[in-house]
Design a protein around this nucleic acid. Structure first.
Lengths: 158, 158
DNA sequence: ATGAATCTCTACTTCTATTGTCAAGAATAA
DNA sequence: TTATTCTTGACAATAGAAGTAGAGATTCAT
């Protein structure tokens, strides 16, 4: 019942971008250094986030990534959903048999009490994550007095 | 971010026991048949639940397992906690360095925004699971008209 | 045009936890 | 005393997570 590192790294990286947003796109190497995440791995995560429409990118010198939407329109749920693929505590809740997918763990359809239980838990979690935007995190960061990176000697961590 | 099968099977099995509670202890072979769970695997799960004080057992003929407490005093959270070991969406929230445990993924202690985020999500989930008892599930089962097993031809599933 | 910087895509590896299976042993009731 | 049932620990198969790697495509500055 753990979130994958993709979700955790994804949220941290996206927060980092929102917190340091400047005129230029942010580059993998800077984000990965500040957040202590393997740059190669972060690339993959950013591909997922881009596919989900949360990031846009630009190649070449001075290129990098930037948020595709304002920080108050990107929620933690968006990021977790993009990184995790879905937000369900169990698989048996999913629509069954969407083309060739392996059989669900449970075929009991309606007559299943616990299905409802897990679905509602997933929903609760999703609603909470949807209530927190990157902007909210940035505001919290400011309150906490997290340093924005001005010089590289000062490493902050989220 | 999936619950393990131990949690799912555990809840289903415990519900099964509560729903069919009789004068005699319930046996692995019956529960596993009704719930379609491998009996050998269910044994292991029941060991966890017993260690957590949710089940008691009796060996020998006519032996089996029975609930250690009334159904309204056992919550889904109890079961998930026993099966899952803990109820945290991320590891970095845990108390660090309790004797020789592998290093936490994150050493950033207080200066971590996302830590609070995941902790609160875990808490929400835990609170919800704690609000549902086995008795609640049984009541739902009755409303749904789930058959109690009177003869074996009729298989119900939760 | 050229070359360096940067993202893009795909494949591969390594590690760990999950999800079981198995066998021998201990307790109990009849 | 014997069949029944739980107990315990070891073991194996599988899947998924996490990270690494290389070749390619795009863009900018000169």
């Amino acid at each position: 019942m753990k979130l994958s590192t993709k979700s955790r790294y994804g949220v941290r990286a996206m927060f980092d971008m929102a917190y340091h947003a400047g005129t230029l796109p942010a580059q993998i190497k800077d984000i990965s250094r500040r957040q202590n995440i393997s740059p190669r791995y972060l690339e993959q995560i950013f591909q997922d986030l881009k596919k989900a429409g949360l990031l846009k990118s630009r190649r070449g010198p001075q290129g990098g990534y930037s948020l595709a939407k304002p920080a108050d329109e990107i929620t933690v749920k968006d990021i977790v959903l993009a990184a995790e693929g879905e937000l369900q505590l169990v698989d048996c809740v999913k629509n069954r048999r969407k083309k060739g997918e392996k059989a669900p763990a449970c075929d009991f359809d309606n007559r299943c009490l616990t299905q409802h239980l897990w679905a509602k838990g997933s929903q609760l979690l999703g609603d909470y994550f949807d209530s927190v935007s990157l902007k909210d995190l940035c505001d919290q960061g400011k309150e906490l007095g997290l340093e924005k990176e001005l010089d590289h000697r000062f490493m902050y961590f989220i």
